[in-house]
Simulated assay, not measured.
Amino acid sequence: MTTHRLEGQHVGGRGRLADYANLVKLPHTVFAMPFALVGATLASYRYPVQALDILLILLAFTAARFAAMGFNRIVDRRIDAQNPRTQMREIPAGKLSVGEATVSVVIAAVVFFTCAALLNRLCLYLAPFALGWILFYSYTKRFTRYAHLVLGFALAIAPVGAYLAIAGEWSRPVGALLVLAGGVLCWVAGFDILYSLQDIDFDRSQGLHSIPAALGARGALAFSRVLHGLSAAQFIALGALLPELGIGYFIGAAVIALMLVYEQSLVKADDLSKIDAAFFTLNGIISVLFFLIVLGERLFA
């Protein structure tokens, strides 16, 4: 089985802007940012939304993600240098120094806290916990196979944070935000397991932990499929909890469930050739589609 692949989804071109964009895998923003907008859209049913709120939410999300990804590259730089799939990342390849990456992470963290303060007091109070969790993720593969779930939780913060940014309080009913976050958590963890299949041999050789390294390719695929089944179920449950979401939402959620089934069909234990399509293309479409479904319900239902 082929386990080492060059990474895709890079920003083309040369220069510092391209280096920093690739340091944090800027194209991967498409995975979670639409879900932040889902949280804000759901909050708009009961609370007023201003253009400045949306701008601050997007800026806060981008800054937090930049800080988390930049921190991950700093923490993992020696591991990345040994892995053929990641040794051309910006720090091990010498395109950016550790100092340059560190300064960019600090600046991003400051921007994140500033945006949180400008949104509301609750966001400011919760900001250290949110940033702390997403930075903590970078260490988890050193001691637990469930790092994928930690990553899923990190991205699940996006819709919850955006909702709180608009509402300043938890959702009613309470379960609405919980199932939305749970759906995102299971979705992210499921596709991260698929992506990690590329590194089974390397992770085992380095004593790193992951579901694929622990369970093997077939076991990891089964684990990922269970997570994606749970994700689809929770997205459907969100519609049942929120009467504002109508039949269009349920149709859209069913389409997303079918897309998750298709995603799983692309990856096989002995064939990882379609990892990029399963990981980036389909999941990017799923996140954008989910937002468009929720926005469509808000505007036209």
Score class of each variant (00 low, 15 high):
44 S>N: 12
38 V>S: 12
43 A>H: 12
43 A>I: 05
49 V>F: 01
41 T>C: 10
21 A>H: 01
29 T>V: 14
43 A>C: 04
26 L>S: 02
20 Y>K: 10
43 A>F: 12
33 M>H: 13
45 Y>C: 09
54 I>L: 15
52 L>G: 06
33 M>C: 11
22 N>M: 06
28 H>Y: 07
53 D>F: 03
38 V>K: 11
19 D>T: 13
54 I>P: 00
38 V>Q: 06
37 L>I: 11
56 L>D: 07
20 Y>M: 12
47 Y>G: 01
38 V>T: 09
54 I>F: 05
40 A>R: 08
23 L>F: 03
19 D>P: 00
37 L>N: 13
45 Y>I: 13
26 L>K: 13
33 M>I: 15
48 P>W: 12
31 F>G: 10
43 A>W: 13
28 H>E: 08
27 P>F: 08
37 L>F: 14
57 I>T: 03
43 A>M: 11
43 A>K: 14
45 Y>P: 11
39 G>E: 04
28 H>D: 02
40 A>N: 09
36 A>N: 03
44 S>T: 12
50 Q>E: 06
34 P>N: 09
27 P>W: 05
20 Y>A: 11
49 V>W: 01
39 G>Q: 07
50 Q>K: 10
44 S>K: 08
50 Q>P: 00
56 L>Q: 03
27 P>V: 00
23 L>P: 05
26 L>V: 13
57 I>F: 02
53 D>R: 07
45 Y>H: 15
26 L>I: 12
38 V>A: 06
51 A>N: 02
20 Y>T: 13
47 Y>E: 09
24 V>C: 01
37 L>T: 11
50 Q>W: 02
46 R>D: 15
18 A>P: 04
48 P>L: 09
50 Q>I: 05
47 Y>W: 14
36 A>I: 03
49 V>I: 14
25 K>S: 10
31 F>V: 09
44 S>V: 14
46 R>C: 07
49 V>E: 06
51 A>V: 14
35 F>S: 00
49 V>D: 04
51 A>I: 14
48 P>Q: 12
31 F>S: 10
27 P>I: 03
27 P>Y: 08
36 A>E: 05
38 V>N: 12
47 Y>Q: 07
33 M>Y: 15
51 A>T: 14
42 L>T: 07
41 T>R: 03
45 Y>E: 15
56 L>T: 12
32 A>S: 15
34 P>W: 04
19 D>M: 03
17 L>I: 14
53 D>G: 01
33 M>D: 02
21 A>Y: 04
28 H>V: 09
40 A>H: 08
53 D>S: 06
30 V>M: 05
55 L>W: 03
20 Y>D: 08
48 P>R: 13
49 V>G: 02
17 L>R: 15
56 L>A: 04
57 I>Y: 08
38 V>M: 10
23 L>Y: 09
39 G>S: 05
29 T>R: 04
42 L>Y: 09
42 L>C: 05
31 F>K: 14
56 L>M: 07
56 L>Y: 08
21 A>Q: 02
36 A>W: 11
17 L>N: 04
47 Y>T: 04
21 A>I: 05
52 L>I: 15
49 V>K: 04
18 A>W: 09
22 N>G: 02
30 V>K: 04
40 A>G: 11
19 D>I: 12
25 K>T: 00
55 L>E: 00
28 H>P: 06
36 A>Q: 08
24 V>W: 03
18 A>M: 08
35 F>C: 00
